[in-house]
Computed example of a mutant assay.
Amino acid sequence: MSYFTIVALMVFLAIAVGTSLGDPGVPPRCQCIKKESRPIGRHIEKVEVIPASSDCSETEIIATLKKDGRKTCLDPEAPWVQRVLQKLFKRTR
């Protein structure tokens, strides 16, 4: 399955969409400026996929970390991120 198909299916399977990391009073825009490409898979508690929209032309993947609840943007092109998404997709079936 291609990356795009996996992301699209996850979105349709009720993955949280459109949640803003910033203030509610700030106009919507891309939330991910820097993206983590180093493997941090075992530290991830939750993954949120935000599809491309009129506010942001890129699909954004935001991970919540187990240890401190901090949110980190993941590089959707990194092979390890694609594997994490595939595992999550298999769990939601």
Rank of each mutant, 00 (worst) to 15 (best):
R93L: 15
Q31M: 13
G25E: 13
C73P: 07
T5Q: 14
C30Q: 06
R83E: 15
L88E: 14
D55F: 15
P79F: 00
L88R: 05
L88M: 11
I44F: 03
V7T: 10
D23V: 01
S20F: 08
Q86G: 07
T64D: 02
I40Y: 03
I33P: 00
Q86C: 05
I44M: 03
I44C: 04
F12S: 04
V11L: 00
S2D: 11
I40P: 00
M10K: 03
A63F: 05
M10P: 01
A14M: 08
L85H: 01
C73A: 07
L9W: 00
I50R: 06
E45W: 03
V81T: 12
F89S: 10
E77M: 08
P39C: 10
S37A: 14
A16C: 05
I6K: 06
A8G: 05
D68V: 02
V49G: 00
D68E: 09
R83A: 14
S2F: 00
Q82W: 00
K66M: 08
V17C: 05
F89T: 10
A16H: 04
T92A: 13
A52W: 01
E58Y: 11
K67M: 10
P51F: 03
E60H: 07
Y3R: 06
G18P: 07
P28I: 12
V47D: 01
R93I: 13
K90C: 01
K34Y: 12
S2C: 03
K87T: 12
G69N: 11
D68W: 07
Q31K: 04
G69K: 09
G18C: 07
V49A: 01
G22F: 01
R70D: 11
I44S: 04
C32Y: 11
T5H: 11
K67Q: 13
S20I: 02
L88C: 10
R70A: 13
R83Y: 07
V26L: 13
K67A: 15
E60R: 04
R38V: 12
I50F: 03
P27D: 11
R93D: 09
S37H: 10
P24C: 06
V7Q: 03
S20D: 13
R38F: 09
E58A: 12
R42P: 01
K87A: 14
S20W: 11
L65K: 02
G69V: 05
V47N: 02
V49N: 00
I40G: 01
D23T: 06
I33W: 06
